[in-house]
Design a protein around this nucleic acid. Structure first.
Length: 94
RNA sequence: AGAGUCGGCCAAGCAGUCGCUGUGCGCGCAAGUGCAUGGAGGAAAGUCCGGGCUCCAUCGGGCAAGGUGCCAGGUAACGCCUGGGGGGCGUGAGCCCACGGAAAGUGCAACAGAAAGAUACCGCCUAAGCGCCGCGCAAGCGGUGCCGGUAAGGGUGAAAUGGUGCGGUAAGAGCGCACCGCGCGGGUGGUAACACCCUCGGCAUGGCAAACCCCACCUGGAGCAAGACCAAAUAGGGAAGCGGACAGUCGCAAGGCUGUCACAUGUGGCCCACAUGGGCUUCCGGGUAGGUCGCUAGAGGUGCGUGGCGACACGCAUCCCAGAGGAAUGACUGCUCUUGACAGAACCCGGCUUAACGGCCGACUCCCUUC
C-alpha cells in the first residue's frame, strides 16, 4: 500500500484514502537534510499552514508530506506556491 | 579621544488580518462556541557533573570499579561558586593554573646526545702507581705512554646531578667559606593552606603520578518510555449454569463413549446436498491497544530590610510567569531602522562547556593632549 505519489523539487506527497470525513496530514522532515530543530520546525509550520488553508478542497485522504533537500533555504513564498500546486493536483486526480 | 579589563542587561520594533494551544468565565445534553488572558532561551544546545522526584534493592562492614585532590567557607548537592594561600603572565585594571605524595615499590623518557641513575665524546690534568727517553754522580727534574683523576668549559636536549663569587687544587669538585636557594628541627603570626625568623645540615632526595601506584575523601542501581490509575476487541486462563431426539455400547446407578438427525459456520439465488466444527451463555482476575494522572507554585521571580569582605543566609511584602503530545508558540500584509547572530522547552532545578551579528548600562586601568 504505497498510495499515489506526487512531487516537485521541494516536496513529495503520497496519499491513501482513509475512513474519516476529512483529510489528515503527516509530515516527514529529515534531520539529515534540514539539520537544526529550528529549520525543521520552519518547514513543518509552512506545510501545516498551507494544509490548513487548503483542507476544504481535499477529499478524505491520509497525506504524507516529505520535504526534499531542495526545500532547504528556499523563501516561504515559493514553498507555499509549490504546496498549493500539489494540493490541487491531488484534488483533481481523485 | 584611543586602547583595554571586569560585572550586569537586551536579543529588531510597531499595527492589522488569519490560525494553533493552556487557563478563567458565559452559553450548550454533548460536540463545540463567544469573550478575556498566558504562550521558548541565554544558551531551551552538548548531555559532561550535582540534586529533587519515581520504582527496585538495602542491618552493618569490606573488596572491586569509578571519581575528586592547596586551605577555609557557601550550598539540597557538586567536578560549581566565594574568599584566602602558593606559582605563572601582564606597565596596569586584571587574567591563568588537576596546585596531595617521587628520601614505599614498579615503570617510562621519542629525536638528539658519550651518558636520561650512575654516564667520560671533545676538552682539562699527569698528583699517586707502572714503563720508556733525555739530563744529572745521586736525590731528582723535564718529556711521553699506560693506568688513572676530573662534571669547571664545549656540544645535544624539554631536562645533564643547586646558583654566583672567593679560596683551594696536578686539574677539578660543597672540598672549604660568604650570600642566595633547598632540607631537618624549633619559635612567632594565622582556624588553615602558608608566611616570617632562628639554629643546624654542606646538599643528600634529578624529571614524569591527566603511567601503574600510595594517601585522604565521595559514590547502591535504573530512569518520566520513571511510575500510578481507568480499560475495549481478539486469543488464552479460572468459576458457574445450560448442553435436544433416537439407536448402539459400558455401568447396579449417576453418567461416559460412538453413530445418525438436529445445531453452528462455509459453498450455493433457494431447497436438497456437500464440507467443516464440538460446544453455548454469563461472570471473574491478569494484560494489550487506547485514555487519564505524573505535568508544572518552584532549593520560584521582584522589591525592601538585617547579618556577612563575599558566595550566600534569614525576615517581611508582593507576583503567578509555556505545558505540547507526529509534538502548539506561527503565517500573511504594511511601515520604520542599525537589515536582525547562535538557535526551539519535552519531569523539574543548580552548574560546567560549547555556539553566536550586534547593542545598552555601570565600575575600573593604561596612554596622549588640553585646562
Amino acid at each position: 500500500m504505497q498510495g499515489r505519489r506526487f512531487s516537485d523539487t521541494y516536496f513529495s506527497m503520497s496519499a491513501l484514502p482513509n475512513q474519516e470525513s476529512h483529510a489528515r496530514l503527516g509530515l516527514a522532515i529529515a534531520t539529515k537534510t534540514f539539520g537544526s530543530a529550528v529549520a525543521r520546525n520552519h518547514i513543518k509550520r509552512i506545510a501545516r499552514e498551507s494544509f490548513r488553508l487548503n483542507q476544504h478542497v481535499l477529499p478524505p485522504l491520509d497525506i504524507m508530506v516529505a520535504a526534499r533537500a531542495g526545500a532547504r533555504g528556499i523563501a516561504p513564498k515559493i514553498l507555499r506556491a509549490s504546496l498549493d500546486e500539489l494540493w490541487h493536483t491531488l484534488a483533481k486526480r481523485r
